[in-house]
Design a protein around this nucleic acid. Sequence first.
DNA 1: ACACACATGTAATTGGTTACATGATTTC
DNA 2: GAAATCATGTAACCAATTACATGTGTGT
Lengths: 196, 196
Amino acid sequence: MRRNQTGYVILGLLSIESNQSGYDIHKTIKGSVGYFWGESYGQIYPALKRLEAEGLIVSSQSTSAGRAERREYSITPAGHKRLEEWLALPFRDDPPRNELLLKLFFGREAPPSVSIKHVQEYQDGLRRLLGILLETEKIGRARNSDNPNLPFWMLTLTFGVAQIRAALEWSDSALAMLSSAEAAAPLNPPPAENVP
Amino acid sequence: MRRNQTGYVILGLLSIESNQSGYDIHKTIKGSVGYFWGESYGQIYPALKRLEAEGLIVSSQSTSAGRAERREYSITPAGHKRLEEWLALPFRDDPPRNELLLKLFFGREAPPSVSIKHVQEYQDGLRRLLGILLETEKIGRARNSDNPNLPFWMLTLTFGVAQIRAALEWSDSALAMLSSAEAAAPLNPPPAENVP
DNA sequence: ACACACATGTAATTGGTTACATGATTTC
DNA sequence: GAAATCATGTAACCAATTACATGTGTGT
């Protein structure tokens, strides 16, 4: 486990709640860190095996009658230690690739309506996500009022909300700029080459 | 070329300025879309060959005396068409993986000082990047006052600035929260297991 | 009967970085 | 003479998604 973060997400989630299956972990990720971190089964199941081989987690076959076979994992003291070590390591912050911005950057190569459509679609997505985050926040607060993790979870939520609000404001000004360009420009602008 | 965006970045840049080498393109990317899009040589050179084989760009060996050998590329009409088609396609907006948020989410597993350090480091990075973006904006405006691409380029810059400003505000409140937690909590909080 | 949620995994493929390999020219 | 920049490319590796493959239990 070098810089394969999957393992650490799993350790983190198991440190909060034990006896989770691979399926559970996948669901939990979607419902908690999902808006800034995703993992697929193709990552989770192999990672679980690796973590167990390293002694960072242990599993037990759960054979409750009338239920699909299920392997439940829990974190070990060694796993806890490993998680803490990772937490103290500097995070790396890779500049996220933003395909919307890339298309806007080259927006002059297409009619303004193309860029307008993209920004509107972006707005829709932002509003949808904002609704989800605010809902998550409300439910999370209500259901975890005495959970010592709550302040940390809220930190990640308020970050998302702040980013979305800023993006929504920006998108309004972007649409204003683009529609004035649409009014001024011909339908399909001639490609301007060699304009450094 | 399915959803390999590298090709489109190259087409886009060549549509703005022709006669660029692979080396040029790499540099241009870093200096223009670099803060939201990166490409390595390992992607660029193979992509150039592929694009030329598809007839979307053409190359010419530049053999100016006293200069390293250099192959310069320009976009073809077919390349232009392909670029426009791609621009009109819906962008996909993958939830960016945010390692800082991931570590903050599990922040309760480590002393508050760990999270504090991360946020401070994040702030430093934000301030540095903000300075670069504002500088880029100033220079870009001055050097491209009559460039029809300028409004689109500014769109991407103002987006970055807005996001960074929001993130800086958030980070202040995050630090306030974390330092109050540090005052209240023991140095290393006992791991709380099974708190759903 | 059908659909949906529970449950576990592997294989193929893609996308991407990093390290390696090489060499010329310019600047200090 | 050394270091930085210009210049081109390949190979190894890693991270991750997607598709494939399979089966049970529950609710309508």
